[in-house]
C-alpha cells in the first residue's frame, strides 16, 4: 500500500507539472478567454451553404456527363442550383461589405469555381 502511494506521488508530481504548465504560463489578456466569436457560426454556415451549392453544381455536371442525369433533369436542376449558389455568394458578399472588409478579403469569399455562377435567372 505504501509502495503504491509512493509511486502514485511520483507519477502525480510528474503529470502535475505538465498539467499546470498552461496555468502557470504568462499570457496576454486577449488569449485568456475563448468563445467570443459570436458571428463565426453564422458566417461559417453561409460559407458552408456556398460550398455545398458549388459542389452540387460540379457534381451535377459530372453526373450529366456520365449519363446519370438526363438533359431534362439537368436543365431543371441547374436553374435551382445556380440560384442557390448565387444567393449564398451574395449573402457572403453582403457580410463582407457590411464588415467593411478590404477588397482583397472580400474577394476571398468567392472561391475560384464561383465564376461559373452567373445570373439569378439561372443562365
Amino acid at each position: 500500500m505504501m509502495a503504491t502511494l509512493a509511486f502514485a506521488v511520483v507519477f502525480a508530481a510528474a503529470a502535475g507539472v505538465f498539467v499546470a504548465l498552461p496555468v502557470l504560463r504568462r499570457s496576454s489578456p486577449t488569449r485568456e478567454r475563448f468563445g467570443g466569436l459570436g458571428d463565426e457560426r453564422a458566417h461559417l454556415e453561409l460559407i458552408e451553404r456556398r460550398d455545398r451549392a458549388l459542389a452540387a453544381l460540379k457534381e451535377l455536371e459530372f453526373d450529366h456527363r456520365t449519363g446519370k442525369v438526363s438533359d431534362v433533369d439537368h436543365r431543371a436542376l441547374i436553374v435551382s442550383l445556380r440560384l442557390e449558389a448565387t444567393e449564398a455568394l451574395e449573402h457572403l458578399e453582403d457580410v463582407g461589405s457590411e464588415a467593411h472588409l478590404p477588397p482583397d478579403v472580400s474577394q476571398r469569399t468567392r472561391p475560384p469555381g464561383a465564376r461559373l455562377v452567373v445570373a439569378r435567372d439561372g443562365r
Partner: peptide
Amino acid sequence: GRRRLAESARNALLASFAT
C-alpha cells in the same frame, strides 16, 4: 471560456495516456 484552464485539462487528458 477559460482558455488556460481548458489547455490544462487537455494536458491532463494527454498525461492520462502516458500513465
